[in-house]
Simulated scan of single mutants.
Amino acid sequence: MAKVEIYTTPTCPYCHAAKALLTEKGAEFTEITVLDPALREKMTQRAHGRRTVPQIFIGDTHVGGYDDMAALDRQGGLDPLLAP
């Protein structure tokens, strides 16, 4: 499987939904909690200015947030990104 990184906060329902979808797909992921301002700034830079969580990266691809990833999945584009 591709390397998956997800930036989250503990109480974000969209973060929980994104992690559930990735788990359903059998994807292992690294979760980065952005309560630390320095980590949030790093996320913002990687996500081209987006400050909301979650922000999801699969390999070198910035997928976006949960809604973006769910839409990608409905269009059949998520599984190919997750494939090794």
Rank of each mutant, 00 (worst) to 15 (best):
residue 2 A to C: 12
residue 3 K to P: 14
residue 3 K to T: 11
residue 4 V to G: 01
residue 4 V to S: 03
residue 4 V to P: 00
residue 5 E to M: 13
residue 5 E to D: 14
residue 6 I to L: 07
residue 6 I to G: 07
residue 7 Y to D: 05
residue 8 T to I: 09
residue 8 T to E: 02
residue 8 T to D: 01
residue 8 T to F: 04
residue 9 T to L: 11
residue 9 T to V: 12
residue 9 T to R: 10
residue 10 P to S: 11
residue 10 P to K: 06
residue 10 P to N: 06
residue 10 P to I: 15
residue 11 T to F: 14
residue 11 T to L: 12
residue 13 P to H: 09
residue 13 P to R: 07
residue 15 C to D: 02
residue 16 H to N: 13
residue 16 H to E: 13
residue 17 A to N: 08
residue 18 A to H: 03
residue 18 A to M: 08
residue 19 K to L: 05
residue 19 K to A: 08
residue 19 K to D: 08
residue 20 A to D: 15
residue 22 L to S: 04
residue 22 L to Q: 03
residue 23 T to M: 09
residue 23 T to S: 11
residue 24 E to K: 14
residue 25 K to G: 04
residue 26 G to Y: 01
residue 26 G to N: 06
residue 26 G to T: 06
residue 26 G to P: 10
residue 26 G to V: 07
residue 27 A to W: 09
residue 28 E to N: 14
residue 28 E to G: 15
residue 29 F to P: 00
residue 29 F to K: 02
residue 29 F to L: 09
residue 29 F to M: 08
residue 30 T to L: 11
residue 30 T to E: 08
residue 31 E to K: 09
residue 31 E to V: 06
residue 32 I to F: 08
residue 33 T to G: 14
residue 33 T to V: 15
residue 34 V to W: 03
residue 35 L to D: 15
residue 35 L to Q: 15
residue 36 D to S: 08
residue 36 D to R: 00
residue 36 D to H: 04
residue 37 P to Q: 04
residue 37 P to I: 01
residue 38 A to E: 12
residue 38 A to K: 14
residue 38 A to Y: 12
residue 39 L to M: 11
residue 40 R to C: 06
residue 40 R to P: 08
residue 43 M to R: 02
residue 43 M to W: 02
residue 44 T to R: 04
residue 44 T to L: 10
residue 45 Q to G: 14
residue 46 R to F: 10
residue 47 A to R: 00
residue 47 A to P: 01
residue 49 G to N: 03
residue 49 G to S: 03
residue 49 G to P: 03
residue 49 G to M: 00
residue 51 R to I: 10
residue 51 R to S: 10
residue 51 R to P: 02
residue 52 T to W: 09
residue 52 T to H: 06
residue 53 V to D: 07
residue 54 P to F: 00
residue 55 Q to Y: 02
residue 56 I to D: 03
residue 57 F to S: 02
residue 57 F to Y: 09
residue 57 F to Q: 06
residue 57 F to P: 11
residue 58 I to E: 05
residue 58 I to D: 04
residue 58 I to Q: 01
residue 59 G to D: 03
residue 59 G to F: 01
residue 60 D to Y: 08
residue 60 D to C: 02
residue 60 D to L: 04
residue 60 D to Q: 12
residue 60 D to E: 12
residue 60 D to F: 04
residue 61 T to S: 12
residue 62 H to N: 13
residue 63 V to H: 00
residue 63 V to S: 00
residue 64 G to T: 02
residue 65 G to P: 05
residue 66 Y to A: 07
residue 66 Y to P: 00
residue 66 Y to N: 06
residue 67 D to K: 15
residue 67 D to P: 15
residue 68 D to I: 02
residue 68 D to T: 00
residue 69 M to T: 00
residue 70 A to K: 14
residue 70 A to Y: 11
residue 72 L to V: 03
residue 72 L to C: 08
residue 72 L to M: 11
residue 73 D to E: 09
residue 74 R to N: 14
residue 75 Q to N: 14
residue 75 Q to W: 13
residue 76 G to K: 01
residue 76 G to W: 10
residue 76 G to A: 10
residue 77 G to E: 01
residue 78 L to P: 06
residue 79 D to I: 05
residue 80 P to E: 05
residue 80 P to L: 01
residue 81 L to E: 07
residue 81 L to P: 02
residue 82 L to M: 05
residue 83 A to V: 00
residue 83 A to W: 05
residue 84 P to N: 14
residue 84 P to F: 14
residue 84 P to T: 12
residue 84 P to C: 13
residue 84 P to Q: 15
